[in-house]
Computed example of a mutant assay.
Amino acid sequence: MSHTVVAEIQKLIEEIQRLGTKNADGLWVVKFGVIVRDDRCADIFEGLVGTLRAAKKRGVVEYAGEMLLQGMSDQVDIVLKKLTVE
């Protein structure tokens, strides 16, 4: 796994914790619409959807569906499953 991808996913983990709340299971959760519209995230991530897909593939986050689209996917929960990238 490239260092750049690891660094991007680690930043994503930090931003989910900053913007999200803990659910009943103690996991961090944030709506896709919240993270995609956040100014700080817009500055950090060139390809937020790509970073989310890479994180999902590695089991770091979980969300419904394959592709998230602004507007249509705004209410989709992104659940943080791991606090580090392996």
Rank of each mutant, 00 (worst) to 15 (best):
K22F: 02
V30P: 00
A54D: 12
V49R: 15
L27N: 04
L27S: 04
G59K: 02
L80Y: 00
I78R: 02
K11V: 04
E66Y: 12
G50W: 09
G47V: 08
T84R: 05
H3D: 12
F45A: 09
F32I: 04
A54E: 12
V49F: 09
K11E: 15
E66R: 13
Q75E: 15
I44M: 10
V76M: 02
L48C: 10
F32A: 10
G50R: 08
D39S: 11
H3S: 14
G50T: 11
L48V: 08
H3F: 11
K31D: 11
R53F: 05
L27H: 04
F45P: 05
G20T: 03
G33V: 08
E62M: 08
I35E: 06
G26S: 03
K82M: 08
M1H: 07
N23L: 05
E8C: 03
E46N: 13
S2Q: 11
L68A: 11
T4G: 11
G50K: 09
Q70C: 08
M72Q: 14
G71Q: 10
Q17K: 15
S2D: 14
I9L: 00
Q10Y: 05
I78W: 01
G59I: 01
L68C: 08
D74H: 09
V60F: 00
I44K: 07
E86S: 00
M67T: 14
G50Y: 10
D39V: 11
L27T: 02
C41H: 01
Q70H: 10
V29H: 03
V60G: 00
L19C: 13
Q17H: 11
D25Q: 13
I35C: 06
V5E: 12
K22C: 02
